[in-house]
């Protein structure tokens, strides 16, 4: 990066360290923190949508929806998330390419799964084999986002379902007495009131989501864990900056990063909780009212 770094073997002490920490590889490492943040920023709303769907389905009066909603929630709770992470992206990838192959391939007589191989014609590959590496990385990342959203969507569904049940029955009955339809009750009374009950659970879920991000590494994404392992490993003389095993220090950096994220979230969530509780018929809302009076 710097002119003075062109010959690392001549460097010592602080200048060596400075050059070492600004190699292209380290810049990729710093950038991968951004990947974690992007994942969080995309997954949180998507998971919330999944959760909303799941919760509404579980409350539905139609039994097939109810079954799907409840089954979805129970399924994810019973199985370790990591199994889903190892399974969902591959299943999604092959499923999508299979569907695309039915649509675009000229010859679909050959079996798609044969001799351990998954084979579709070149045109059905997602993304196409000729597309730049960036597309492949974005696609892999998108699959990871879906896997995360499916799993954490189920947890969100659980929280939202509980929150919807917690809205006082009398409120809904009053709305019904005014002649609102079920959809109107949901939209005008249930959902606005539900948030006060859902926020503590969703805050907790956000914390869990933060702590699940290192699992990206298991999905083959070059995230912070990947780079920490790669950079920290013993570097022999073949590299420009040889050093012994430094993985412990790199992982300490990750630890500090996550602790900071947690602390920051705690502060922000505490503020949100106060805001949401304001004016609500809950213990927290009551405490706020008394404090104000």
């Amino acid at each position: 990066m710097f002119e003075s770094c062109s010959d690392p073997s001549a460097l010592h002490g602080l200048s060596w360290m400075l050059c070492y920490l600004t190699t292209g590889k380290h810049l990729l490492f710093y950038g991968s923190f951004g990947i974690v943040l992007i994942l969080l920023a995309i997954t949180a709303p998507v998971a919330l949508i999944f959760g909303f769907g799941g919760a509404l389905a579980a409350r539905s009066a139609l039994w097939p929806f109810k079954l799907i909603g409840r089954g979805y929630i129970a399924m994810v709770r019973g199985v370790p998330d990591i199994i889903f992470f190892l399974f969902v992206p591959i299943a999604m990838d092959q499923g999508l390419e299979f569907l695309k192959s039915r649509a675009v391939c000229e010859d679909t007589s050959a079996p798609v799964w044969s001799n351990n191989e998954f084979h579709v014609c070149a045109a059905a590959k997602i993304p196409l084999g000729s597309s730049p590496q960036l597309y492949h990385e974005i696609y892999g990342f998108a699959l990871a986002v879906i896997a995360f959203s499916v799993v954490y969507g189920a947890f969100a569904a659980n929280v939202l379902y509980g929150a919807m049940q917690a809205v006082p029955r009398a409120q809904l009955e009053t709305a019904e007495a005014y002649g609102m339809t079920r959809a109107q009750v949901n939209r005008r009374v249930l959902i606005p009131q539900m948030w006060a009950y859902a926020i503590p659970g969703l805050s907790n879920l956000w914390m869990i989501l933060i702590k699940a991000t290192p699992l990206l590494f298991l999905l083959g994404i070059e995230d912070i864990v990947y780079w920490a392992r790669e950079l920290g490993a013993t570097k022999s003389q073949i590299y420009a900056f040889p050093h012994p095993d430094w993985r412990l220090y790199y992982f300490l950096v990750l630890l500090v990063f996550y602790l900071l994220m947690t602390k920051l979230s705690e502060i922000v969530l505490a503020k949100i909780n106060r805001r949401i509780a304001f004016g609500q018929a809950t213990a927290a809302g009551e405490a706020l009212r008394k404090a104000g009076a």
């Binding site: 190699t23 292209g24 590889k25 810049l27 990729l28 790669e230 490993a233 022999s236 073949i238 590299y239 420009a240 900056f241």
Partner: peptide, 15 residues
């Protein structure tokens, strides 16, 4: 693999 020098490894530029 990118972790098996000198066969293949990731150099300091991340390549």
């Amino acid at each position: 693999e990118g972790a098996y020098p000198p066969y293949n490894y990731i150099d300091d530029n991340g390549q």
